[in-house]
């Protein structure tokens, strides 16, 4: 564990808490993509199957359980409790355009052709693009609530911090996982446009709106 990985995990946790808080406090999931959230639940489910087979540490197990539980909690709030507020008209990104190619790629490019490893690879690839429906939704509506933009900033920062963690681990531990690194870089690049808008608008106290 190094400082980049720890702050990355904290940013990830913070993002999830921010999203749950937004939905709970406003009693609304308006502006949140249910498709991105469904894919995140799928990401955590397929990646953390190793909870059953491998024990790494109490920290690792606890975080995994929190991530899985919170992702299903978010789905419960979005699709059951506050279903009436779900903005499905703007959530039109086609999930199969991501899930199908990602599933194909995880069969073709992986570290080992075994069920658990293919599912892990699938989760890494899917996570890298799972935010696209959310970003697409913002581009359609042209704006995001400030709390939603904080959520996205924390969520994007998490993988960016993981990249620093991988650089650190490469130099100091000789650790290098090509699949995670490439997918993590793709994931971070997808946020760059959002990061720019967030820093130039939200940090100056304005609402996140897209240029016309």
């Amino acid at each position: 564990m190094n400082v980049f990985r720890l702050t990355g995990d904290i940013a990830h946790l913070l993002a999830i808490i921010l999203l749950l808080m937004k939905i709970w406090k406003t009693r609304s999931c308006a502006g949140v993509s249910g498709k991105s959230q469904m894919m995140f639940a799928l990401v955590f489910t397929t990646r953390y199957l190793d909870l059953i087979t491998n024990f790494i540490s109490l920290y690792n197990t606890t975080m995994k359980m929190i991530f899985i539980a919170s992702s299903y909690g978010t789905l419960y709030l979005m699709f059951l409790k506050f279903r009436a507020t779900y903005d499905s008209n703007h959530d039109t990104f086609r999930m199969e355009f991501l899930v199908v190619p990602v599933a194909g790629l995880s069969f073709l490019v992986n570290h080992d052709f075994s069920p658990l490893e293919i599912l892990w690879t699938f989760s890494i690839y899917l996570e890298s693009v799972a935010i696209l429906p959310q970003l697409f939704m913002i581009s359609k509506t042209g704006e995001a609530e400030t709390i939603t933009s904080h959520y996205l900033f924390a969520l994007g920062s998490y993988r960016a911090l993981y990249i620093l963690n991988w650089v650190y681990r490469f130099y100091f531990e000789g650790f290098f996982d090509l699949i995670a690194v490439v997918a993590g870089c793709v994931q971070t690049v997808l946020y760059c446009d959002f990061f720019y808008l967030y820093i130039t608008k939200v940090w100056k106290g304005k609402k996140l709106t897209l240029p016309a």
């Binding site: 690792n60 658990l116 892990w120």
Partner: peptide, 10 residues
Amino acid sequence: EEFEYDHDEL
């Protein structure tokens, strides 16, 4: 060489 599962990150 046998594959060793070692995903210790989240």
